[in-house]
Amino acid sequence: MAQSVPYPVVRISPLGYLLMALRLLLMLVLLIVCVPLHYLWKLLGLDRMWPRMFLTGVGFAAGLNLSKKGKRVPGALLLSNHVSWMDILALSHAANSAYVAHDGLAQFGLLKWLCEMNETIFVARHRRTSVGEQTDAIRAALDHGGTLTLFPEGTTSDGTDLLPFKSSLLGALEPLPEGATVQPVLLAYEDVPHVSWVGDEPGLDNFKRILARLKPVRLTVHFLPPLSGDELKNRKTMTAAAQEAIHEAML
């Protein structure tokens, strides 16, 4: 999370605090129900559906109102713009997606635990000795038909425009695995100034003001046409093509 821009300072009303408490209670119930079922499914060798169910439920509890446009390609690598922590909830529901994330998230025990249940692949670009393992993990996930999402901006934007996409984040996909599909995705929030996580806003403050909203968080997930031809030549062409496609869809 970056960008040195102002963020909305919202005074939470008593009703907002009550709504926040109810939403947190619902999220806790979801966690209590989904975690044991996840480990049971894992023990039985069944599909790991419960982490996605949990994230979908958290999105519902947080007031996320989701609609979809375009056709999603199952098992694709999704390249998406990044606006809020709610992006994770949205794409877990809309695309049944796992994620490629920076290993900084793994420093937080609870967050790491939740991410690992959802089959998050942590990457550490500064540790050259682990690049091969990270590449293998991403390729294995794609080979087994899993959908992965990567946020090429590397941080959250204000949602009105894109930050430069970083081609280095796609290093594990060069060369692209045979048969792999790369699909750009635009996350378009209706009330983006009051949803985006930018500036110096602490994460907890952003979380609280989203949960205290009386209005739903309306989001349209646009699945754009997959990249093809020369666009897939290397990580730089993939990055440039995805950024152009998402930028055009924002206009």
Rank of each mutant, 00 (worst) to 15 (best):
M1T: 10
Q3W: 09
S4T: 13
V5Y: 05
P8R: 13
V9E: 14
V9T: 11
S13E: 12
L19S: 12
M20P: 04
L22R: 14
L22H: 07
M27G: 06
L28N: 04
V29K: 06
L31C: 10
H38S: 09
Y39A: 07
W41C: 12
K42S: 11
D47N: 08
R48V: 04
P51V: 07
F54G: 02
L55Q: 12
L55R: 05
F60S: 08
F60A: 13
F60W: 14
F60K: 13
F60L: 13
A61Y: 10
A61T: 10
S67A: 13
K68C: 14
K68A: 12
K69Y: 01
R72F: 12
V73E: 04
P74M: 10
G75D: 03
L79T: 07
S80Y: 03
N81I: 04
H82N: 13
I88F: 09
L89H: 13
L89R: 03
A90C: 09
A90E: 04
A95N: 10
N96I: 02
Y99P: 01
V100N: 00
G104E: 11
G104Y: 12
E116V: 14
E116I: 11
E119I: 02
V123A: 02
A124D: 15
A124R: 15
A124S: 15
H126R: 14
R127K: 15
S130R: 15
V131A: 15
G132F: 08
G132S: 12
D136C: 03
A137L: 04
A140F: 05
A140Q: 15
A140K: 15
A141F: 08
G146Y: 02
T147F: 03
T149E: 07
F151Y: 14
G154Q: 13
D158N: 14
G159S: 06
T160N: 10
D161N: 09
K166N: 06
S167V: 03
S168A: 15
L170I: 04
E178C: 03
A180F: 03
V185T: 09
P193A: 12
P193T: 12
W197G: 07
V198A: 09
G199D: 05
E201V: 09
P202D: 14
F207K: 09
L211F: 05
P216D: 07
V217E: 01
T220F: 00
V221N: 01
H222C: 09
H222I: 10
L224P: 00
P225V: 11
P225S: 11
L227P: 02
G229F: 06
D230C: 00
L232W: 00
K233M: 01
N234A: 00
T237P: 00
I246T: 01
